[in-house]
Design a protein around this nucleic acid. Structure first.
Lengths: 249, 249
DNA sequence: TCAACTCTTTCATTTATACGAATAGCTTTT
DNA sequence: AAAAGCTATTCGTATAAATGAAAGAGTTGA
């Protein structure tokens, strides 16, 4: 399993570069950014345009992200399983009226796949596709729950960088907290100021496949809210674990 | 502009194949589907896995869609412009309480980029990323408005296939209807039974860049509803045309 | 008006990939 | 229990892509 394919790497590097940047790129700016000569890039970029993975503005000579990736990416969201997940998350929001997230672990980061927010339904999906270091979030801690100390250290070779003043930065403290937690994991202003989170893992075949979390503005938090959320999360996790065998993720 | 790059085409063909199919693929099944030898595919597919564009289930020896494409695809939805679009669409829904769509023309199809539905906010995005032939939808007609007869014919070389019993299947009739419409375009059960649609184009530099539509169940439709929707659509289009210069699409 | 600059595009040679044949591991069939 | 299916791999050679240099094409500035 030590095979790398340079043409594919080049193609993907272009897509990532263009999708990450807010400014459109020219062929030469892509060349500069990737350290690949324009003559190499030329046919690749043209093919990407032809296949609508990139779009080219002839007037400004600028490449930007095409619609194909949007289309392919949204196929995950169009699946029946995805509908079921947001439906189940909706029940939590109906009960507790707080924002609910669903995410998976991706190389040490939480990747947010779904979000339901009761107070502003129009902007529902604004954080979908975003990522945060797992150690700094409740949902991430749920995903890291079964990691031992060495695994944690190898996941973050550069250490635990703080996201806020409250972020856990010691591997030992993180591991201790993960060990101490039984069902739920918690976060107190560790990724966002003035926000608490409660999360729990979703299992598939006795392994953690995903996690669910609820975020609460700190001023709205009390013991009643906590037990309401924990009840709703537990109930939702039971339902999710019934459909999760069919997950793509 | 006649340059094609086979390695890139192969890479993209794999991504499209795996993302389109509901079943997971093996290396050999990808090989069969694309007519490319497994030994060629081998390093490409491994690289795609390494970069998380594909994921590999070692137990079942099955490749499926990785999370990277979801991540990149959702970057369009995370943009500030996208937020603004859904916000403006939300105003239409607040006024008329009917489902609102936003889409662009993509090779003869409407590609739906955004949707706001007032009655079932949880399943908001279920049709995003989907596509329909433009000639069979109000939103598509808005996008085709400035096409002349020859352009329409070359866009659909295989003719206008009916989606329902009411779909327009004659190029002449379609072109006539596009010519007759002044601001709004209409659809009466041409793509979905029991659904009417009203749409209008969104302009950027005097060219049609996108379109907005509202769908109404036929039993709920009357002249009052029609004028309410047309007023809301017109108002929204003015706001959209102010932000549309910054569109990626 | 000319020159300097940016970007895209082409071309011949070096360099890397693509292919079929063959190997090896695994599961199901006979 | 042997064989006939699958599957993922590896290897040597034919073939195709990558590269830097150089040429167009268009734009900005003096």
């Amino acid at each position: 399993m030590r095979t790398e394919h340079k043409p594919t790497l080049r193609t993907l590097a272009i897509l990532e570069l263009v999708s990450a940047g807010s400014e459109p790129y020219t062929l030469t700016s892509i060349s500069r950014a990737l350290g690949i000569s324009p003559s190499t890039l030329f046919p690749i970029v043209h093919t990407l345009c032809e296949q609508r993975y990139l779009s080219y503005d002839e007037k400004n000579q600028a490449y930007s992200l095409g619609l194909k990736l949007f289309e392919i990416g949204s196929r995950i969201q169009s699946s029946h399983v995805y509908d079921r997940i947001t439906e189940i998350m909706g029940q939590i929001v109906d009960t507790c009226d707080e924002t609910c997230h669903f995410g998976v672990l991706d190389r040490g980061d939480v990747l947010y796949l779904a979000k339901v927010d009761s107070t502003n339904p129009i902007r529902m999906f604004s954080t979908i596709g975003k990522r945060l270091p797992a150690y700094g979030t409740a949902i991430g801690k749920a995903l890291l729950k079964n990691y031992d100390l060495d695994e944690l250290k190898s996941l973050y070779p550069e250490g635990l960088k703080p996201l806020t003043a409250h972020t856990i930065t010691s591997f030992e403290e993180l591991h201790q907290q993960l060990n101490d937690s039984d069902l739920f994991t918690y976060e107190v202003e560790e990724s966002n100021k003035s926000v608490r989170c409660i999360a729990l893992p979703i299992y598939r075949n006795k392994a953690i496949a995903a996690a669910l979390s609820v975020a609460i503005p700190i001023y709205r938090y009390d013991e009643g809210k906590k037990s309401c959320i924990e009840g709703a999360l537990k109930e939702a996790s039971i339902q999710l674990e019934q459909i999760i065998p069919y997950f793509v993720f």
